[in-house]
Design a protein around this nucleic acid. Structure first.
Lengths: 269, 269
DNA sequence: AGGCCGGGTTGATGCGCATCAAGTCTTGCC
DNA sequence: GGCAAGACTTGATGCGCATCAACCCGGCCT
């Protein structure tokens, strides 16, 4: 089976509870709640640095926020590319399905991150993107975004920067996959998440893993059993404490040291 | 040694021979030769699809082509980002140097490809870029490019597409590094090069590898000995024939089959 | 000509992690 | 409530590839 994610991926339902527990109660969320200016992610999102006027224009092109249940697909591989999305709450994974091979998780997307940039080149979604929990996304039709970018240099710059940042991240990932041991991959992964939570104002030390061990393994190029074992060992060593999907980093410096350690595979040093 | 490339990387010399063998003879190349409209890569380069007028504007922002000798750095890691570059002839490798670890080759750049996109986000070059042979590049100061992009939607689109394409490539690379055996990596690598040469009008079956086995190993996350061994085995199996750095693909379908084979690591299938 | 050095090949050995296999716990569903 | 399926853990085994080591070859320097 080069199979689908087992959880359902059918038509979008309407009742949903977002992460903060506020029920959306079966109606479209009132426009006001969706305003960028009111959004907690405002400072970390695409419209970063826009003037008030430009921000209003930006706001205007956002399509109604879409609620997704765990396991639902925001987009499917090879589907036509129309829009970028920004995660508003929750989280998603991007999965590339290859013929006759295991599916491969290529990204996890957290609030404030842009999804779909890799679809622009060929007007086609490169992978499927699936919610890991109840999730809201803002939809940005790409042609309208581009129109706006023509008039607003700051937005253009932010778009470039956004894509460039992702290039850098992917390259970092390539380095990780190419040269490091299982321990180092896990350590980097945890630190990466920690950093991303921190920059969103969440605790960098204790957080919830919305993805399964299997997802982590796929992402890091490891067998899920290895992920499980390494996490267990980290816990024995007092680096972290884990209960199910709750992770606490207990010895941050040691994790950093481990992640940066020279003695990876073919380290030569 | 987390060392530098051993070959010299000093000040730029002037005498250079480009790949086609035409000597540049110690002078700046006359403006005419550098015109995009005259460039053989015209159809595969960034100004793809520009109107004549826009093309002229694009032309105007290109800085004098820079000749690089084998081993010379086009840019150095962490250096300030100012410009994008397009390879005009020759080839380069991008290398990320990490503290206490082996250098990691993240990209090979062929003619027509854009170098430096990953530097935009932080106005800093993410890796060093070093010529693998005598190489010419066109320099595009980024702020001028962005100014022009404001007025020319087609250029803006091409820039997006270019970055997006690279995102896709990097992700493909992540899949390769994460889930595939040494044989599959080499097969994919060869096929990838083949395809890139083909789309440039060069022979997709016989071509020159400008990079060392060690570079290939670094790029593919393998030890150089493994690269050497796998290539030898491919040759025994009649998949390719190799003499030094000259590579001929003898059995393209078999290589494709190998590269796509379901039986990678943790393939599950 | 002689020596050095980087690039490449080939062989022997060992380790890291994938794989196979059980078994537990949680969660959703009839 | 009871069953089934998925998520996770833990153990045993084996293979793929890194590593170490020796060697060849051609180019460059003196």
């Amino acid at each position: 089976m080069a199979g689908r994610d087992p959880a359902g991926e059918e038509a979008v339902p309407v009742v949903v509870t977002d992460k903060s527990g506020k029920p959306a109660q079966g109606r479209r969320r009132p426009a006001d709640e969706t305003r960028c200016a009111r959004c907690a992610l405002h400072a970390r999102c695409l419209p970063l640095g826009l003037e008030l006027e430009a921000l209003a224009s930006f706001d205007a092109i956002i399509e109604h926020p879409r609620p997704l249940k765990r396991g639902q697909a925001l987009m499917r591989q090879d589907q036509r590319f129309e829009s970028l999305y920004v995660v508003r709450s929750g989280s998603l994974k991007q999965v590339v399905e290859q013929v006759g091979q295991r599916d491969q998780v290529t990204h996890f997307h957290l609030p404030g991150e842009v999804v779909g940039l890799d679809g622009i080149a060929e007007s086609r979604c490169y992978g499927s993107v699936v919610a890991l929990e109840s999730t809201f996304v803002c939809e940005l039709p790409f042609h309208r975004l581009d129109d706006l970018a023509e008039q607003v240099p700051a937005l253009r710059g932010e778009l470039y920067r956004c894509m460039s940042r992702e290039l850098r991240n992917d390259q970092r990932m390539m380095c990780l996959l190419s040269g490091r041991t299982a321990d180092q991959r896990l350590a980097s992964f945890m630190l990466g998440l920690s950093e991303r939570f921190r920059s969103r104002g969440c605790s960098p030390y204790c957080f919830h893993l919305s993805m399964s061990r299997s997802d982590i393994g796929s992402y890091l190029g490891l067998a899920l059993e290895t992920v499980s074992r390494v996490i267990a060992r980290f816990q024995e060593q007092g680096l972290v404490s884990v209960e199910g999907r709750e992770l606490c980093i207990e010895d941050h410096p040691a994790l950093v040291a481990l992640a940066e350690e020279g003695a990876g595979r073919h380290s030569g040093a």
